[in-house]
Each structure stands twice: as structure tokens, then as C-alpha cells.
Amino acid sequence: MSTDLPEWLLARQEPFQHGDGIAGGKSIRRGFVEKSVDSMSLVFRESFFAERLASRPGLLQGIDPRVKVLTTILLIIVAGLARHPTTLLALNLWILWVAKVSRVPLPMYLKRVWLAAPLFTGIIVFPSIFNVVYPGDPLLILINFSRHFRLGPWTVPETLAVTYQGVWGALVLILRVGASVSLAVLLALTTRWQVLLKALNMVFVPQVFIVMLEMSCRYIYLFLQTTSEMFVARRSRTVSRTSTQEQRCFVSGSIGALWNKAYILSGEIHAAMVSRGYTGTPKTLVSFQISRLDWLWSLFVLAVSLFFLGGDRIVAW
């Protein structure tokens, strides 16, 4: 790409990276303002990304959103009921295949699903593979103390070992969390969010809740922008280090200020709705059409669920 723009304008720059925490010669550490602004901008990035992906042609994008919501819930239940790592591994592979034929960019998808959720689960579940925490048959003996001894209320067993049951349970949990998270992420990535919320009507969510969901989604963006601006304004006026207490006061002040604004805004929205004829029962335009392909897909997912659950029951016993 050749442009006449100067080099420094094209260079990618993270906001606030320079100068932060340099005072006192210490290493750079991101403060609470930067972290908050970052996580807020991530919401915008994700929603733009999902919107773009949802309008691409692909397998899941073409399925009726109501069918997609129901089949996703069914598959998450299947993942919840499966008890064998092999079943869960196969299920995960199939979900990956569905993502691939739905043209979801795999590196980003894998990073989002298989880096965050299972890593976190792995850390939580790690202690349970040892016999000190979760009793079971030893698989790998690490230390042999050669006798029992007591440590306060705990009795430490003769050996410290990795147990068969512990590893098995950890594997099942990680694979199951991975499958559930990937199904939820796929649903959100391949459906336009406004449409997804409307589709909830199908799973017996009352209309008024759906209207509130849609409204709150819209105002989340507004509030995120408002708070980002508050934070950036504050950050740009801060020249020295601030105490933790001062920072907490600023954060709570922002929360209070945001609530003031939000409350006034809700009054204004209400007035605007009433003046347009709102009487308390919301009306929405919903026009979904279930095609033959959607029916076939539902039947197929049902068959897949039976296949996985049946297979699971056979290998698990």
C-alpha cells in the first residue's frame, strides 16, 4: 500500500504505552485506566468482528437463528452429558470442522476458544490430579514418603502421586469446557447480534425481555464510549503518580457519575417512547423463515447428538 502519509502516522501505536509508570525508573506497568479502556475497546472490536463474520456466506450463517439457538443448546447439553474424553475429543473436532466450513478464521477462533477457557480451567483443575487433593489409583508416583504423617488437620498419604482418576477427570472437564465455549462462541460469531437476540423468542423468552436485551445492548455501546472518554480525559490530565486510594475514589466517582447520566437518560428514553405511542407492551418486527435446509440441519444435529451420546455410553461402560 503506497500512500503519501508520513511514516509515524502509519506506525501502530498502543494508547498510553509511553510514559506510564516510568517515573521512579520502574518498569512499565499498565494502570487500571489503561486496562479498563482496553477491555472496553475490546467489546467494540469483538462486536464489529462478529458483525462482519456473520454477513459472510458460510454454513452456520445461513441457518435460521432460531434453529441455531436450539441446536446450540442441544449440543451444549450433549457436551454436558458426555463422560468419556474420546467422545468429547470427537465432538470438539466436529465443532472445529463446522467452524471451518462456516469460514470462521481458525487462528483467531482457536486462540479465543482454546487459549482462554481451557487454560483457565486447566489451572483450576490442576491440583486435583494429585492424590493429596483427590484420592485415586496412582498413575505416576512422584515422591515416596514411606510413611503417613499428619499436617494439622490433613493426613498426608504415603506417596505423592498423580492419579489415574484425577487425570481422567481433568481431561474430561477441560475438553467439555472447550466444547461448550466453542459452541457458544460459534453462535455469537455467526449470527448478527440483533437477530440473535430476537431469535430468543423461540426459546420461550418473553417479548419484553427481548426488547430490554436489545435496548441494553444499544446503550452498552453508549456507556462504554462515555466511560472510555471519562477515563481518557482523566488519564490525560494526570501528570504524577496517584495513590491507590485516590484511584479508587476516581473509579467510584465515575460509577456514580455514570449512574447519574444513565438514570436521566432512562427518563428521556421513556419520554421519547411514550410520545411515540408506547403503552407498555412492546411490538417488534420479526420476520424469520424456516427453510427446508433448516429442518434438515435440525434433524442432522439431532442425529449427531444421538451418535455422540450413544457412542459415549458404549465406551464409558
Binding site: 487500571f32 479498563s36 419484553v208 430490554m212 436485551l213 441494553s216 456507556f223 421513556h270
Partner: peptide, 30 residues
Amino acid sequence: KTKYAPLMAIGAAFTFVIMMFNIPVPDGTT
């Protein structure tokens, strides 16, 4: 009454945004 839907929706948006705030704690993390 009719205020219900907008007030609840705004309350939800407010809660969502609050959950994203990083609060400084004494040990220097958030």
C-alpha cells in the same frame, strides 16, 4: 408502569459496563 422497560434496560447496560471496570487494589494489581 411504562417506565419499566427503559429503566431495566439502562440498569442492565450500566451493570455490564461496571463489570468491565478495573478497580485498583492495594497490592498494585486490579
